[in-house]
Amino acid sequence: MMGRLMQAEFIKIKRKGFWFLAFLGALGVVAMQMVNYGVRKDYLFTQSEDRWGYYLMNIHSFTPLAIVLGIVILTSFLSSVENETNAWKQIIALPVSKRMVYLAKFTVLAIVLFISSFLMGIFTLLYGLYLGLGEAIPSADLMQYSFYPYFASLAVLAFQLWVATVSQNQAIPITIGVVGVIFAYSASVLPDWMIWKWPSLMNEWNDPMINVWWGLGAGALLYLAGMLDFTRRDVK
């Protein structure tokens, strides 16, 4: 059933620019560094002995922002597909459980974001190679900067999906999302418990893995809370 529901979800996001956004987000993050390095490559090369490490750090300065923004846009998008003509009532009147419907939405978003993160990793690698940052490619770091922010941001995804699906008015999730993007941008001054800080991989112990676990743990809890709330509500 889950597979069929997800196929239905993938049909619904056709021609809506969903995949294009996923691609653009990934490219955008690397494009920022294309400009940066394009303009002052020689200067940036003098900044650190470890050119790959410095490059990855630069890339990572925009990743949390792009991910949180992407989450806000895609979640709102996916629920607006249903809200537009109140198609919720049509799906829920089909022989599927509401829990499955919610899970399908979450999974589709998680997949699209994962693909976006994967693309970002590829683009990062390709531009890094083009820049000639050195023979030794730090593949572990590359993986970390590509996928840790993704897992760390699953809490934000679960939260935004919850708000977006239960709001009749999509201005509410968008507003909350914009505040979230600002939070993600000011991650360095936020306390560790705030979910919008996690994609930055910063914490007081300097261990990015902690954020990954937090993202997965809090993500699971927020997902459950959102799903239960969605199941409980009457469909208008």
Binding site: M1, R4, L5, Q7, A8, I11, K12, K14, R15, K16, V81, E84, T85, N86, A87, W88, K89, Q90, I91, A93, L94, P95, V96
Partner: peptide, 23 residues
């Protein structure tokens, strides 16, 4: 129920396909 629900950016066939998958 009430007003028909549909996905305006999809064709009639695709609209039915989303329900068909589930059914």
């Amino acid at each position: 129920v009430e007003n028909p629900s549909y996905y305006p950016h999809l064709t009639a066939y695709e609209n039915l396909e989303t329900s068909r998958k589930i059914l």
